[in-house]
Amino acid sequence: MKIAVSSSGNTLESDIDPRFGRAMNFIIINTETMAFEIKENTQNLNLPQGAGIQAGKTVADLEVEAVITGNCGPKAFNVLEAAGVKVITGISGTVKDAVEKLNTGSLAYAGGPNVEGHWV
């Protein structure tokens, strides 16, 4: 399965970025092979508003099946849901640990956003 993980770094040992819309990078990973590539999120980091919406589109366009992140607000969640991307929220630690947990089936998909929108 191809997934996106919000990350503050660019390796599998990097920490998960708790922010989705304004995450530093997205690490796009094949969960079977652990092969990954980096999608920078700089263009959304400095957006005056709508970072969550734009980040949602960024990862949806990469045709990932799921997203792992810390906090996901309602607008980003709606975009991801509309694109058929499943969301896992409230995750911290390294990217690698999170993917391994996903592979063992110990992560649950979120039914909704876990934080309020930031309004900007």
Binding site: N71, V115, E116, G117, H118, W119, V120
Partner: peptide, 10 residues
Amino acid sequence: GCPVIASITN
């Protein structure tokens, strides 16, 4: 308004 909402969310 806007800045108040931004200062109390989460």
